Computed example of a mutant assay.
Amino acid sequence: MQDQRYDAIVVGAGFAGLACARELATHGLRVCVIDRKQDLGERMHTTGILVQEACDAPLLAGVPRALLRAVPHVRLYAPNLRSVRLGADGYRFYTTDTPALMRWMGEYVETCGVELRRGQAFRNATRTLTSWHVDGVGHARVLVGADGARSRVAHRLGLGQVTQFLYGVEYEFDGVALREPHALHCFINKRFAPGYLGWMAQTPTGVQAGLARRHHPGGTQVPDMAGFLHHVAPMTGLSATRRPDSIRAGLIPCGGPVRPMQREDVVLIGDAAGMVSPLTAGGIHAGLRHGATIGRSLVRALSGRAGPHMASSAVPAFAFKRALRWAFDHAQFDAPVNLLLAARPTRRVVEQLCFHRRGGLVPDPVEPD
């Protein structure tokens, strides 16, 4: 197997890596994706909450509807638990059965012609005159690092590395329902989530509840999920004493794109490239878009129709979200949020972040007598 030759080897079978591989394979190129996990649905680090644009990506266009649940509203809570309900006509978020979605994506790209090697870790790669040799895999004209925020490709090959993180914990509760299941519940609270927020949403299989906070190098503080669940229980209806059926946790990049992102026919994509919103830490849509864009650029480069500069046109500046990230890190206080949550300027900022200026304040549902 070590003598296999490919047009591209992609390290990492996440959203970005599989989106890139799909573009390459559907244009007739020979591509191999390797991932250290034998089961793509195990040891997940992503929430699996999709913005509507992500569902329109080619990789997810055919996803079975049973793996998705539409969530048409956002309910945003101040620290004192007062809230506003936001929405936009025709716009939806989607929660997923995330492990099943990852397995489905792996099977789907295989039908597109991708060779997917599960249980194959990336150890190292060396440059030859005409290709990259990846230990235990083979040779490739280009190498793509899509192996997450702690990218081994970036570390081994001297590319830029993510240095700013959030630390998040998410619980899954199977077979239970929220009091308001058609909303993505987001909680701003410096005590429980300094530098970020807590969230709760109905999924196809139950409820997911998460909490993330700013991570500092050498820090040992982890999110207080027990305290958070007890704090929000009156709003959500989820028992604070119920034990989760599964737990996932990990670092979430929030510093923006890394530099350098590429050299000598190797390029980073997705979380490995820091292609995650510095403010919201949303990386699925960005990863899908970046992976597909780099895939199309590689198709042109490998066919001789473009030069080697693969990544520059696909890198957003994130200027506005970087500024808000700084404010969240240095000027987050609960009292002003309690006062300003329902104010029009605050709502406009939230609407822009959630619905790309299409949103608005939505009346609370009328409770039955």
Rank of each mutant, 00 (worst) to 15 (best):
residue 29 L to S: 07
residue 22 R to M: 14
residue 48 G to W: 10
residue 50 L to P: 11
residue 17 G to W: 06
residue 83 S to V: 02
residue 72 P to C: 05
residue 16 A to I: 11
residue 36 R to T: 10
residue 59 L to E: 12
residue 22 R to C: 01
residue 80 N to G: 13
residue 27 H to G: 04
residue 97 D to A: 15
residue 73 H to W: 07
residue 23 E to A: 15
residue 52 Q to C: 02
residue 31 V to S: 09
residue 82 R to E: 13
residue 54 A to P: 08
residue 77 Y to R: 09
residue 20 C to H: 03
residue 86 L to M: 14
residue 27 H to Y: 00
residue 10 V to M: 12
residue 93 F to Y: 15
residue 86 L to V: 02
residue 11 V to N: 08
residue 70 A to P: 14
residue 39 D to M: 07
residue 61 A to Q: 13
residue 38 Q to R: 12
residue 63 V to A: 15
residue 27 H to S: 13
residue 50 L to V: 01
residue 60 L to R: 06
residue 39 D to T: 06
residue 72 P to E: 04
residue 90 G to V: 07
residue 87 G to L: 01
residue 57 A to K: 02
residue 83 S to Q: 08
residue 46 T to P: 00
residue 12 G to N: 09
residue 29 L to E: 08
residue 92 R to I: 00
residue 43 R to V: 06
residue 34 I to S: 10
residue 34 I to C: 10
residue 86 L to G: 07
residue 15 F to M: 15
residue 37 K to R: 15
residue 21 A to E: 05
residue 86 L to R: 03
residue 83 S to D: 14
residue 65 R to G: 13
residue 70 A to C: 04
residue 49 I to G: 05
residue 62 G to S: 14
residue 57 A to V: 01
residue 61 A to F: 03
residue 76 L to F: 13
residue 12 G to Q: 11
residue 19 A to E: 06
residue 77 Y to D: 12
residue 27 H to P: 05
residue 58 P to H: 04
residue 82 R to I: 00
residue 28 G to A: 06
residue 29 L to M: 12
residue 78 A to G: 11
residue 81 L to V: 03
residue 26 T to Q: 15
residue 79 P to V: 02
residue 22 R to S: 14
residue 63 V to H: 02
residue 47 T to Y: 04
residue 22 R to Y: 02
residue 23 E to I: 11
residue 38 Q to T: 12
residue 25 A to H: 11
residue 27 H to R: 13
residue 75 R to K: 14
residue 76 L to G: 02
residue 23 E to F: 01
residue 67 L to C: 06
residue 70 A to G: 14
residue 29 L to W: 03
residue 17 G to F: 08
residue 65 R to T: 11
residue 17 G to T: 13
residue 46 T to W: 01
residue 48 G to Q: 08
residue 24 L to A: 05
residue 70 A to T: 07
residue 86 L to C: 03
residue 59 L to Y: 08
residue 86 L to P: 04
residue 96 T to G: 11
residue 53 E to N: 06
residue 31 V to R: 10
residue 61 A to M: 09
residue 14 G to N: 07
residue 56 D to Y: 02
residue 91 Y to D: 02
residue 12 G to R: 11
residue 84 V to D: 09
residue 43 R to P: 00
residue 30 R to P: 01
residue 19 A to N: 07
residue 97 D to T: 08
residue 14 G to C: 05
residue 10 V to T: 07
residue 35 D to H: 03
residue 13 A to K: 07
residue 24 L to S: 09
residue 95 T to E: 09
residue 94 Y to S: 10
residue 88 A to Q: 03
residue 21 A to H: 06
residue 95 T to P: 12
residue 23 E to Q: 15
residue 76 L to V: 15
residue 31 V to D: 10
residue 55 C to M: 14
